[in-house]
Write a protein that binds this DNA or RNA. Structure first.
Length: 594
RNA sequence: CGGGAUGUAGCGCAGCCUGGUAGCGCACUUGACUGGGGGUCAAGGGGUCCCGAGUUCGAAUCUCGGCAUCCCGACCA
């Protein structure tokens, strides 16, 4: 393909509001163009990479017997009312009206529609299992779209859904997709990890996220340095820590022992917790903090108190699970202050007539401090198992952190990573099949709801994530598998027909051999411009056809990643590119293993 | 939701304080030279200065009100 007529515009500078590497590179390389906040044009170069990734996805899914279909972007309100999500989805669901004033939404995901497809067509256990997928535009009206394609409002997603007759078969289907996803991301040539994730309010189900590792990632991941345990920090089990001051004699509860009027921040408070025995105040892990939550489940709403060591952070996902709640928020601050009779900063568990959940690392601890429920006052000598009549128990309620001992193997410690979530496999159970009556007749002629799983890959986000991992100061470095073109042939002809012809011949021969070739035939440009553009566009292999080389009967090849340069006679070019392609694919596969 | 910025040619920016015919670099067009890391020269094309109201003889510039974009924060219970 010749570059002179392709829609590729390169820029020296990225637009000012491009805030991540992938976004800057894609804008500079003329791959994308912003149309509105979080909404982009995918120009030809980007689309070629997207199509290549889609092909990998299709190949690996079709291999497992998944069937592709295409469902609508615009979906009727009625289906969403059946699942209950019309009410619960919130503002991310973009709703609209047609000319007859009927209500619709733009699909942020397709569980409702696919469940409707299957319930109409599948009636018998003999037709199960069934795995359906599509690659479709999704729309989610994000509060704050950012980072280019990484968090757009409109984006391309592969979403797949499986339907099973039994729970065991649903598990089998889940792990089959887990393996398929691992194959897909291995073929991409990126560092990635499958990560155990929080499954939200759906009890008994499980889920993995696939993350591309990148410092710019929005998600925190903890991974054990000794075993395989890798999980989203929302989910990571935190070890029960021993109380560091266990050998102190156990004191009785001393009410309002410490006075810190006007000091609200926890760190400042503990420094001011001074008495005869503690002239410099107390360490942070000697103190507790206390949160008042409001939980909901169905129509029920109730309040609960959570107590943590002061140097720990609460983990809302764990708290929600322990409370068996669907929804969880902090109690509005004014209400909490009114109930406790103290300003925030001085609220404590003692005297609150609510169930109190205490973090496991405080089990057996004593001589703690806690808020005195009077402005400026903290109790001392707090011992949770002695002083809390409404104690609900000790649970893992905190965020695990780097350096904590691994709960799974007990040998290693957690290391922290940041990741970009590019895929998720999720066992749904009967969350949609039950309310939407997606049922089949089993061997005994009994009507049963199907067991479902859902499986997503953010196609456009993955392309952005690939770039977050593959660039240098000169521009993009495409992995072979998704490079828009494999080879970039630069014709340094300066208007000379013999050189231009040699470049065209190189392109023809490589394309005949099955490679995707971009030939920079643009006239009147100095070599430097073509070199800079080639580096920016980042095709894995560059072939320079110029007077210098042809004089010696060679063309020049250059590996974009390593910058290694070597020469071949034109007759050997195809063989050399074949060898390079094999090596590049091998190295990409190796990267994914690390 | 709170705070801070920014909006001028396709992109990056200056001009605004101190009101008086809208500028620079890149990109684009034409020509000449050049020809292995964004080359040189010359001549060009391209603007609702985010929108609206106001002040003024006159507004990109001053005032008020919107909108959009980006950043930061959302702690403390």
């Amino acid at each position: 393909m010749i570059q002179s007529t392709l829609l590729i515009t390169t820029y020296r500078e990225a637009p000012r509001d491009a805030d991540t590497v992938s976004q800057q590179l894609m804008l500079r390389a003329g791959m994308i163009q912003k149309v509105a906040a979080g909404i982009y044009d995918y120009l030809p170069l980007a689309l070629r990479a997207i199509r290549k990734f889609e092909r990998i996805v299709r190949e690996e899914l079709d291999r497992d017997g998944c069937q592709e279909l295409l469902m609508p972007i615009v979906q009727p309100k009625e289906l969403w009312e059946e699942s209950g999500r019309w009410q619960f989805y919130g503002k991310e669901l973009l709703r609209l009206h047609d000319r007859k004033d009927a209500e619709f939404c733009l699909g942020p995901t397709h569980e409702e529609v696919v469940t409707d497809v299957v319930r109409r067509h599948v009636k018998s256990y003999k037709q199960l299992p069934m795995n359906l997928y599509q690659i479709q535009t999704k729309f989610r009206d994000e509060i704050r779209p950012r980072f280019g394609l990484m968090r757009g409002r409109e984006f391309l997603m592969k979403d797949g859904y499986s339907f099973h007759a039994t729970n065991e078969d649903a598990d089998r289907g889940y792990w089959q997709m887990f393996e398929a996803y691992s194959r897909i991301f291995r073929r991409l040539g990126v560092h990635f990890r499958p990560v155990e994730a929080d499954s939200g309010a759906i009890g008994g189900s499980f889920t993995h996220e696939f993350h591309v590792l990148a410092g710019s990632g929005e998600d925190a991941i903890l991974s054990c340095d000794a075993c395989e345990y890798t999980s989203n920090v929302e989910k990571t089990a935190a070890p029960k820590l021993p109380y560091p001051y266990a050998d102190e004699p156990v004191l009785p509860l001393q009410r309002e022992h410490f006075q810190t009027p006007g000091i609200v921040a926890t760190e400042a408070q503990v420094r001011a917790f001074r008495d005869a025995d503690h002239p410099d105040g107390l360490p942070l892990d000697h103190a507790t903090k206390c949160y008042v939550y409001r939980a909901t489940r169905g129509d029920r709403t109730w309040d609960a108190v959570v107590v943590l060591r002061a140097d720990h952070e609460p983990n809302p996902a764990k708290i929600r699970a322990v409370l068996e709640a669907d929804g969880l928020d902090l109690m509005p601050i004014e209400e909490a202050e009114r109930m406790a009779g103290a300003r925030s900063g001085f609220i404590g568990p003692i005297g609150l007539d609510l169930p109190i959940y205490v973090d496991a690392s405080l089990e057996g601890a004593h001589n703690l401090t806690c808020g005195g429920n009077r402005d400026g006052a903290h109790h001392f000598g707090f011992k949770p198992d002695r002083d809390l009549p409404t104690l609900a128990g000790f649970f893992d309620l905190r965020l695990a952190r780097e350096g904590d001992a691994c709960v799974r193997c007990g040998v290693g410690t957690y290391q922290a990573f940041r990741g970009i979530e590019v895929g998720q496999v999720f066992k749904l159970g009967t969350k949609y099949s039950k309310p939407m009556a997606c049922v089949f007749l089993d061997e005994a002629g009994q009507e049963q709801p199907m067991i479902m799983g859902c499986y997503g890959i953010g196609i456009t986000r993955t392309i952005a994530a690939v770039l977050e991992q593959n660039y240098d100061e000169d521009g993009i470095i495409w992995p072979w598998a998704v490079a828009p073109f494999h080879v970039h042939v630069l014709s340094l002809d300066g208007g000379k027909a013999d050189i231009a012809d040699a470049a065209a011949e190189a392109e023809r021969a490589l394309e005949a051999a099955g490679f995707d070739v971009l030939r920079d035939d643009r006239p009147g440009l100095s070599p430097g411009v073509k070199f800079k553009d080639a580096d920016l566009l980042g095709m894995p292999l560059r072939v320079v056809v110029g007077a210098k080389g042809l004089k010696d009967g060679v063309v020049e090849l250059r590996d974009r990643r390593t910058k290694y340069v070597w020469k071949e006679p034109p007759s050997e070019l195809v063989a050399a590119v074949r060898a390079f392609a094999e090596k590049a694919s091998r190295e990409d596969a190796k990267i994914a293993k690390d």
